[in-house]
Design a protein around this nucleic acid. Structure first.
Lengths: 153, 153
DNA sequence: GCGTATTATTTGCAAGCGCAGGTATTTGTG
DNA sequence: CACAAATACCTGCGCTTGCAAATAATACGC
């Protein structure tokens, strides 16, 4: 009786309902991962994602505009995010010699080390919150899809 | 032009990779929906979700703490978010008479009207960005799961 | 080469967020 | 009833964000 608090029929479309669930799942995971990363390594979820995204490029570098697109963040926010990480010595800016407007952002040695340290924390937090999510009937379908990382692929 | 830019092998775990994709999908959808709702009705994606969440409760009301849990937001942010919506006349606070600490937040008539107006915008923006997402091989699996709103359910 | 449009990045500003701390109310212990 | 602990909500403060405008460099037309 008391477990049946969420029985709405969602007067919005099925798509809106799905988006609502996706959003809920995302926000829940992010909050959990954020806390874990912040507590263990002093970096935010977004900062981690920047390091992770960059490290997956050859040379671990990317242009500012590419980066902002990759993490879906405004260019101004990306500039300051990179500033912060640069000030902590985790990233460094490298001028592009063929186009002096362009700036490559690259992961430093310290950045690679921090990323290597933080990855297990990230994975553990992810696994933990996903286990929890899979127990919620509303979240379970998407959570499963996430775990399997796509049905066909 | 450079459509084949995403060929990384993602040195992180499969879970981390899945989370990265989920995050990308979420942020992309949110950015798109945010713009649509803001442009057409002057409300943010979060404000819409508050109205939607409340309207699905009988009486269209909820306690502050319930609300902050439902939309995964801190209590302080929830307080101010409700303040803003209250100042616009979309929500109203109702004191709980059995526990004078508790406050029910309820959707006003104007709030219901705005929600009714904004739903089509929300649905259209959602449908549009989802069509786009389904063309991205990286996003397609999750986007499909979202459209079907769960494989089994 | 000169001037204009375009592209890449940064900065000013106001708004929203989380954390820590504060107030008001209820609950539990005696 | 008195008092401490817990609960529900609000406020001060610093940080991050997005939008719009500024800056710097390239590309194009002439």
């Amino acid at each position: 009786m008391e477990g049946a608090a969420v029985e709405e029929e969602t007067s919005g479309s099925a798509l809106a309902q799905g988006w609502c669930v996706l959003s809920l799942l995302h926000n829940t995971i992010e909050a959990h991962v954020e806390q874990a990363l912040q507590a263990a390594h002093g970096i935010s979820s977004r900062e981690f994602s920047v390091l992770a995204a960059l490290s997956e490029r050859q040379g671990a570098k990317m242009r500012m505009s590419e980066l902002s697109e990759a993490i879906v963040l405004s260019q101004s926010a990306t500039t300051r995010l990179v500033n912060r990480l640069e000030n902590r010595g985790l990233l460094s800016r490298v001028l592009c010699d063929t186009d002096r407007r362009g700036i490559y952002t690259s992961v430093t040695e310290a950045g690679h080390r921090l990323l290597a340290e933080a990855r297990p924390t990230n994975d553990a937090a992810l696994a933990e919150i996903l286990r929890t999510a899979e127990r919620d009937p509303q979240l379970a379908p998407l959570a499963d899809a996430l775990r399997r990382h796509g049905p066909g692929a």
